[in-house]
Simulated scan of single mutants.
Amino acid sequence: MRLISISAGKVAPLFGNHHPNYKSVASAIRKNVVSDLENPISVEITALGVLGDEQADLSVHGGIEKAIYVYPSEHYAFWNELLTRETKKPVDLQRGAIGENFTIEGLAETEVFVGDRLQIGVLEFVVVKLREPCFKFNAAMGYKGASKAMLQSGFSGWYLRVLKTGALNAGSVITVIPGSRETSIAQQNQKLLNNRNQKDLWE
């Protein structure tokens, strides 16, 4: 298990006809890689996440409890195939495209539980909750069904709180320190999916 890349982004207008009330909305979902395996630059990780990263709506992203968004690299094949089929044009998403700060390999939602600690390099984090996709994710992907596809697939990723700050670079090994292991990210995802289906809460 290791960290493949670290990404950060700035708040900017996000366009797309993916919500009845918005034609353009502020978002920092578009992230750029600042450290990867080819160029493993050390990046400062603060209590609020990757130094220089921004969030447009702190009620749903960012802050102490959602400082870092983690996404498994293994899911990219799913998104490239789905978006290529649905948008009728070739899609090859680059790391950070899902809006994540840490792109990782070797660890999935079924194996990660709320309260687990992740030691990445010399830094330490705790798993807080899954990522709940919204219409901004649809707009960023250019596909109105992206949020629904994220929940249906279970490929949601998860948020971390930073326990130990400092410098971190791509290529760092990830070690899981189990917590109480009562609720996995996959179980959280299934519960949210069921609730949205029951209440028909799809954008």
Rank of each mutant, 00 (worst) to 15 (best):
A149S: 15
L168W: 01
L123K: 07
S147A: 15
Q188C: 11
S180D: 08
C134V: 05
M141E: 13
Y159Q: 03
S184Q: 14
Q119M: 02
A170Q: 00
R161H: 10
I185C: 09
G145I: 00
L163G: 01
L123C: 09
M141N: 15
G171V: 02
V127N: 02
G121Q: 09
F125R: 01
E182F: 03
K129W: 04
A146F: 05
Q187F: 06
K191I: 08
V126L: 05
P133R: 03
Q119W: 00
R161K: 15
G154N: 14
G179D: 04
M150D: 01
F155M: 14
M150Y: 05
L192W: 13
V114K: 10
R117M: 07
A139Y: 09
G166F: 10
E132K: 06
S153E: 10
N189Y: 12
F155A: 13
R161A: 12
A149E: 12
S180Y: 02
K136S: 05
C134E: 02
K144V: 08
G142A: 09
L130Y: 02
L118R: 12
P178D: 07
T175D: 11
G171D: 04
K129T: 12
Q119E: 08
A146R: 05
T183P: 01
S180E: 08
A186K: 13
G157L: 06
